[in-house]
Deep mutational scan, measured.
Amino acid sequence: HHGSGALAALHADGPHAGLPVTRSDARVLIFNDWEERKRSEPWLRLDMSDKAIFRRYPHLR
């Protein structure tokens, strides 16, 4: 199991509170979210491209 239990660094406060600090933090969040959702949506594709990251977390651009 590759990303399970990996912890992402999140901004503690300010405008980005609760959001990932780096792209690799964002990838951890996206992976964990996908892993949760694919139980009920097995067709869901995992997209951890930069484009997917920016779409979801525009502050990382």
Score class of each variant (00 low, 15 high):
residue 5 G to I: 13
residue 22 T to H: 06
residue 36 E to D: 09
residue 1 H to T: 11
residue 48 M to H: 12
residue 38 K to S: 09
residue 45 R to K: 15
residue 7 L to W: 07
residue 23 R to K: 15
residue 20 P to R: 01
residue 56 R to N: 06
residue 2 H to S: 11
residue 18 G to M: 09
residue 61 R to W: 08
residue 42 P to H: 09
residue 20 P to S: 01
residue 57 Y to A: 00
residue 35 E to W: 14
residue 27 R to H: 04
residue 24 S to D: 12
residue 41 E to L: 05
residue 44 L to K: 04
residue 56 R to E: 13
residue 47 D to G: 02
residue 27 R to S: 04
residue 1 H to Y: 11
residue 50 D to T: 08
residue 55 R to E: 15
residue 45 R to T: 12
residue 6 A to W: 13
residue 9 A to G: 10
residue 58 P to L: 01
residue 33 D to V: 04
residue 46 L to H: 02
residue 18 G to Q: 06
residue 61 R to A: 11
residue 51 K to F: 12
residue 35 E to K: 14
residue 39 R to G: 09
residue 22 T to G: 06
residue 59 H to W: 02
residue 54 F to E: 12
residue 33 D to A: 09
residue 20 P to A: 00
residue 8 A to I: 09
residue 58 P to N: 02
residue 6 A to S: 11
residue 16 H to L: 14
residue 42 P to A: 05
residue 29 L to E: 03
residue 46 L to C: 06
residue 34 W to A: 01
residue 8 A to V: 13
residue 23 R to C: 14
residue 5 G to F: 09
residue 8 A to W: 03
residue 32 N to L: 14
residue 32 N to E: 12
residue 13 D to C: 11
residue 14 G to S: 03
residue 36 E to T: 10
residue 26 A to Q: 00
residue 56 R to K: 13
residue 5 G to Q: 15
residue 23 R to T: 11
residue 3 G to S: 10
residue 22 T to Y: 03
residue 9 A to L: 11
residue 50 D to W: 15
residue 57 Y to D: 00
residue 14 G to N: 04
residue 31 F to H: 05
residue 56 R to L: 11
residue 27 R to T: 03
residue 19 L to Y: 04
residue 44 L to D: 03
residue 52 A to Y: 09
residue 26 A to T: 00
residue 7 L to M: 11
residue 15 P to N: 15
residue 51 K to T: 11
residue 45 R to M: 09
residue 10 L to E: 04
residue 3 G to E: 10
residue 5 G to A: 13
residue 38 K to F: 07
residue 28 V to C: 12
residue 15 P to A: 12
residue 61 R to G: 08
residue 49 S to W: 02
residue 31 F to A: 04
residue 2 H to P: 15
residue 60 L to A: 00
residue 23 R to H: 07
residue 11 H to A: 04
residue 48 M to A: 04
residue 22 T to K: 05
residue 37 R to C: 05
residue 48 M to T: 10
residue 9 A to I: 12
residue 13 D to N: 08
residue 51 K to C: 15
residue 31 F to Y: 12
residue 28 V to Q: 08
residue 57 Y to Q: 11
residue 31 F to L: 07
residue 58 P to Y: 15
residue 3 G to V: 12
residue 19 L to S: 02
residue 16 H to E: 05
residue 29 L to N: 07
residue 52 A to E: 15
residue 4 S to G: 11
residue 17 A to E: 08
residue 42 P to C: 08
residue 51 K to R: 09
residue 50 D to V: 08
residue 33 D to H: 05
residue 26 A to S: 08
residue 5 G to P: 14
residue 9 A to R: 14
residue 21 V to I: 13
residue 39 R to S: 11
residue 22 T to V: 11
residue 4 S to E: 11
residue 41 E to Y: 07
residue 3 G to W: 12
residue 38 K to V: 14
residue 2 H to V: 11
residue 37 R to F: 03
residue 42 P to S: 05
residue 20 P to V: 01
residue 44 L to H: 06
residue 9 A to H: 14
residue 17 A to M: 10
residue 28 V to T: 08
residue 33 D to I: 12
residue 42 P to K: 06
residue 6 A to K: 14
residue 59 H to M: 00
residue 55 R to T: 15
residue 6 A to T: 15
residue 49 S to R: 04
residue 18 G to C: 05
residue 14 G to Y: 03
residue 1 H to N: 11
residue 14 G to P: 05
residue 46 L to W: 01
residue 52 A to L: 05
residue 53 I to V: 11
residue 57 Y to L: 03
residue 27 R to N: 02
residue 29 L to D: 01
residue 25 D to L: 02
residue 20 P to Q: 00
residue 37 R to V: 03
residue 2 H to I: 13
residue 12 A to P: 10
residue 28 V to M: 10
residue 32 N to A: 12
residue 34 W to C: 01
residue 9 A to D: 08
residue 48 M to S: 03
residue 34 W to F: 07
residue 31 F to C: 08
residue 45 R to I: 14
residue 25 D to P: 00
residue 40 S to M: 09
residue 53 I to P: 00
residue 17 A to K: 14
residue 54 F to S: 07
residue 45 R to P: 12
